[in-house]
Nucleic acid binder design. Structure first.
Lengths: 344, 344
DNA sequence: TTGAAAGCGCTAACAG
DNA sequence: CTGTTAGCGCTTTCAA
């Protein structure tokens, strides 16, 4: 990049000392500067199109107005780019820039990236995960200003920002209850309690908890829970099997829009109509949720909000504690939930 | 972030001068350093967990090992996070970090972001667009090291990296020709020649060009082109209208997977089967392309490859010229293309 | 009101 | 083979 004019150039051109130029350019008032001098500096700066060298400044001030974001594979997952967008917006509003890095799932890469970030004197780092889970941030981060985005690290004294999955589960229950469903309600995807993840996923556990609780409070209950992975193929396969097994669910609570996607296909193949025969409510609000026929009622992952909150937390002055911040998951009402079928 | 040990600390602890420490730590061989001194420095650096301050170094060397990426709304578009991932990987392989910024579609924001980047002494900037188009990069970029990602700016002497859409059009034609289609071939989406974009989009124009050319070379031709927007709703509406108009296309070339998504729905409603009655081939390879039933044969936008090439171009030593680099769009063969229907 | 000078952490001439 | 010194562009203490 071409060499730029320095503050010394401005000072010289304005006929003042670097000190004076610095004070004027920083807009500080605790130093008395004559109006004449101030004007000359401002004028010279404009004439030279002066721009400060932020890295030189940060060498002195120990503040780079820069944040590092390190994630596993966050950029890959569709719509998680939203996380970055939220973070970007919040950072820009406060005049900060974001370094984005990604380990690509390699746990060993974390330290290297954090070091690369620290070498560049970032003021803080956001440690993010693709899906909500427990993580073990690199030790290099200890003692630094850190917030955990979409992940938890008990005992690391860093705040976490996660979606409020419990409340989302309750929301799903209320949607169904509101339409009149009290039985024939199945969860497709459940807690993600698979052989590889026997304890389920954070999101799965919390949602089922909220769902159960609110269903019970409404005098209803889950008829069954199908534990499976959360992809389209799983939704298709499991709903198909369910129907083949003679079950006639009245409402499906799908773990993700992808599962719903597959569920729609299985339902259509069986000649069942949404929502006339079966209601469907799910989680995520991916783009295609509104393209499905009928458009899918779903509870959105607040991606951009997560990013925004993380940045604001980190940029707000004051110490950081280990609070877990739960960000609301907004309900997107569309057309996949209706009253129970008569013979339901 | 906590204060870190400096090179002066290392030198002191090793009992050498900063110069010696600097040379050893930089791994330079053009200066003779005794093995004993070298070992002492290395040992001291390890003991102190020394890490260089890259911003201080760049103040001297004028190289920050940092690249800026400014885009319109690239993080928003699903899978364009892939662009970032490709760029990230390439940058990491060469020990660089990426600042990511986004104008959010506000053209005035470009200058501000570029300045913020330049203020932090980035070595180069990648100027990126969400969909391939002509752009007018901020003048602050002139004279700097710049590459255009997924966009063109004639007369700016910066290289562009774009998908090879012409060849992609030819590929689509070959897929159809190979299956035996020579007539009843319709383009849904066309050049994107709508009232708001009368000249069409870059991708649309190039694809239709390649498609036409290769079809003709194979003794076939397009039966018709439906100009419409490239979303799911458009695909649904237009294919529905086509069928309602009594047309019985044998093959659909959809401008995007989203259009295909809508086309599938319209086809299903009309009782037409893919690929038995109608073949479908499209462009993009979004995630859901493989979830559709049948899985969609499509020509992928090489997102991560675009990011990778842009970074490699910018990091390769030597001057940058205004070459347009066309990145191949790989064909993903799935199950939506078959031989023409007998009464086709 | 203003300026001289030191120093942030590092590199690189230049001496020795 | 190694150290002294200056300086990258900026902020800030201190003195004038």
């Amino acid at each position: 990049m071409p060499r730029r004019g320095t503050m010394a150039d401005v000072a010289r051109s304005a006929g003042v000392s670097p000190t004076t130029a610095s004070f004027v350019l920083a807009g500080r008032t605790d130093m008395r500067i004559s109006d004449a001098a101030r004007q000359r500096v401002l004028e010279a700066a404009r004439a030279l199109a002066y721009r400060p060298n932020v890295t030189a400044r940060s060498l002195r001030t120990r503040s780079s107005r820069t944040i590092g974001l390190v994630s596993d594979t966050i950029t890959t997952t569709p719509y998680a780019g939203e996380v970055i967008r939220g973070a970007l917006e919040a950072a820009r509003a406060r005049d900060h820039l974001l370094f984005i890095t990604e380990t690509g799932g390699d746990p060993a890469a974390g330290s290297g990236l954090v070091n690369a970030l620290l070498d560049r004197q970032v003021d803080a780092v956001i440690y993010a995960a693709m899906f909500t889970r427990h993580v073990d941030p690199p030790p290099e981060l200890d003692g630094g200003r850190v917030v955990l985005l979409n992940c938890l690290a008990p005992g690391r004294n860093a705040p976490s920002v996660v979606p409020d999955e419990i409340e989302a589960g309750r929301t799903a229950a209320r949607v169904l209850l509101g339409a009149g469903h009290t039985r024939g309600i199945w969860s497709i995807g459940g807690r993600h309690a698979l052989p590889a993840t026997p304890d389920g996923w954070f999101a799965g556990n919390e949602r089922i908890r909220g769902l159960d609780e609110a269903l019970r409070a409404g005098g209803a209950a889950l008829d069954g829970v199908v534990e499976c992975a959360w992809e389209a193929a799983d939704g298709y396969r499991e709903v198909r099997a369910l129907l083949a097994g003679g079950r006639r669910p009245g409402a499906l609570v799908c773990a993700t829009d992808r599962v719903s996607f597959g569920a729609y296909q299985a339902l259509a193949e069986a000649g069942l109509r949404v929502p006339d025969d079966v209601s469907v409510v799910s989680f995520d609000d991916q783009d295609f949720a509104s393209w499905l026929r009928p458009p899918l009622t779903t509870i959105a992952l607040p991606h951009s909000e997560l990013g925004r909150v993380a940045v604001e937390l980190i940029l707000d002055p004051g110490p950081l504690d280990a609070t877990v911040h739960r960000v609301p998951m907004p309900l997107r009402v569309r057309d996949s939930v209706g009253p129970p079928h008569e013979n339901g």
